[in-house]
Nucleic acid binder design. Structure first.
Length: 503
RNA sequence: GACCCAUUAGCUCAGGAGGUAGAGCACUUGACUUUUAAUCAAGGUGUCCGGCGUUCGAAUCGCCGAUGGGUCACCA
């Protein structure tokens, strides 16, 4: 932007710039245009009248009607005094037919010098070729941007995953499925907003920079505020601020936003990702289950046209109702161990050992239950399944179960063996919450750097009083992966986190 | 973090018993007024990821490193 280097503009490579032959050809073409006063970069606007898609879908009405389209040249076939090319715009591709009689000698000769990758505006009439392809017969062509680098091959596209992520702009140009994925991502997020807005939820924005990183068990990114001269944390969840808003009297709130966790990267994890959290006063986790399955099945129906989808070759049925079982039931089903019948931690650890699940010598009953679930149950949960009643040790923000204080009113949703959502009947007892935080602080001091930090102001808010509330969090990226049949989280994030290249 | 694999032309990929490299697309020139992976003729592509070592000679073998991918660990 700030580069006003004339050499770069005139196409003459600067000294340190070692321009390859392939690139030099295009720079020379640009320099020639500039010399003739036809610098495409001087053009500031152009007015297309329609998208390629509209022409293709409404050919009957548009036949022989004048249109103006704009887009990138994706292919070119020159046959003497007539040529064909395909133009890619935001909605798809359409063929143009360029003939010397329509354009005139000079303009036609110039068109022949345009390259694949150049962006042009085309004025002409809609027609169908002898071979039956709907096309635009060009009357006038305007070069709107000269591309100085060749695009990847037309047939195989861009396959190198490293390059695809680093140069997503190229990926989007040459790989149509990638465009589709990100269009669906946008539709999913819009669908969620529509769903919640129509049910009276208020969308809010809470801080990304936190003084204490709370609401989840994760290592935070640390940054520094210069004026205040304090370290701050990038948020690891939106939970604690949203609950403050329930205290403040908003009874239904949600936030869709970026969360940052300083942890490993793999096909399911990116250091920054998008979550939605919503909170509804006077509701509990059963209401959150109803909402979750209705929301996700509605999204599938509205966006994909079916509640039965395929993920990586497996059929997933999102039709309601979804299976609901407690963690104790799930562990019993897949391991035969009935944790409900076990009272002591000693006995629980013995059962875990028998089942081949490694737990620490000090593991509690709840920790054993959680370990058995993670190691023996999760991999079986392909179809949508709500797992209810998590142990209190791993649920510091969820309300204790009345009939069993070792457990909480919490569920997680699993689809394709992956955690998709997490929800509680929110803990609103400030005294209990403070004790839970203190336990987390003890764990933190014992070396667990993912334990919660004490948040005194949050305790203060609960002391002011939060009504009974149901809360739900959904990982948007994983949901988009499911609904777009994407293998890796990096395929649903436009610009995934990458290591810088050291060249 | 550990282990395995990959990295060759702008792109997709071959090849290489150690003797400085190929195809297709793309590109250049010419022919062609309904092609569509257009066709036909001719032509040029390169830090073979980087560094060091072995060797008369390394893109090929060895070591170190970079980046990416995979598996595992971590991620309640």
């Amino acid at each position: 932007m700030a580069n006003t280097n004339d050499d770069a503009i005139t196409g003459i490579p600067t000294q340190e710039e070692d321009v390859k032959e392939l690139l030099k050809v295009r720079r020379d073409k640009l320099a020639k245009l500039q010399k003739e006063g036809k610098n495409p970069f001087h053009i500031t606007r152009f007015n297309p009248t329609c998208y390629s898609q509209q022409i293709l879908e409404n050919f009957e009405e548009m036949e022989e009607k004048p249109v103006v389209i704009a887009g990138r040249i994706m292919s070119k076939r020159i046959m003497g005094k007539a040529s064909f090319a395909h133009i890619l715009d935001a909605k798809g591709q359409i063929q143009i037919y360029v003939q010397i009689n329509e354009l005139g000698q000079e303009a036609y000769d110039e068109f022949k010098t345009y390259d694949i990758g150049d962006i042009i505006g085309v004025e002409g009439a809609v027609f169908k070729t002898h071979k039956g392809e709907i096309s635009v017969r060009a009357k006038k062509i305007t070069l709107l941007c000269k591309s100085l680098q060749p695009l990847p091959e037309k047939w195989h596209g861009l396959k190198d995953v490293d390059l695809r992520y680093r140069q997503r702009y190229v990926d989007l140009i040459v790989n149509p499925d990638v465009r589709r994925t990100f269009v669906i991502r946008s539709q999913i997020i819009r669908g969620i907003r529509n769903y919640l807005d129509s049910r009276g939820f208020l969308e809010v924005e809470t801080p990304v920079l936190h003084n204490t990183a709370g609401g989840a068990a994760a290592r935070p990114f640390i940054t520094h505020h210069n004026t205040l001269d304090i370290d701050m944390y990038m948020r690891i969840a939106t939970e604690l601020h949203l609950k403050r808003l329930i205290v403040g009297g908003f009874d239904k709130v949600y936030e869709i936003g970026r969360i940052f966790r300083n942890e490993g990267m793999d096909i399911k994890h990116n250091p920054e990702f998008t979550s939605i959290e919503l909170y509804q006063a006077y509701a509990d986790y059963h209401d959150m289950m109803d909402l979750t399955e209705d929301l996700i099945s509605t999204l599938a129906r509205d966006i994909l046209g079916s509640e039965v989808i395929t993920y990586q070759g497996e059929e997933i049925n999102l039709s309601r109702p979804w299976t609901r079982m407690t963690m104790v039931e799930a562990v019993k089903k897949y391991t035969g161990i009935d944790m409900a019948a076990i009272d002591s931690a000693d006995q629980a650890r013995a059962e875990a050992k028998k089942a081949g699940v490694d737990v620490g010598v000090k593991a509690t009953w709840g920790e054993v239950l959680n370990a058995l679930f993670e190691e023996k149950v999760e991999d079986n949960l392909v179809q949508p399944t709500f797992i209810m009643d998590y142990p209190i040790e791993v649920s510091p923000l969820a309300k204790k179960k009345l009939d069993d204080p070792r457990l909480t009113y919490r569920f997680e949703l699993f689809i394709t063996r992956r955690e998709m959502a997490n929800a509680f009947s929110e803990l609103n007892d400030p005294i209990d919450q403070k004790e839970r935080f203190l336990e987390q602080v003890r764990q933190r001091e014992a070396g667990n750097d993912e334990a919660e930090m004490m948040d005194e102001d949050f305790i203060n808010a609960l002391e002011i009083g939060m009504p009974p509330t149901g809360g739900l969090g959904i990982g948007i990226d994983r949901l988009v992966m499911l609904l777009t049949d994407s293998y890796s989280i990096r395929d649903v994030i436009l610009f995934p986190t990458m290591k810088p290249r050291e060249d």
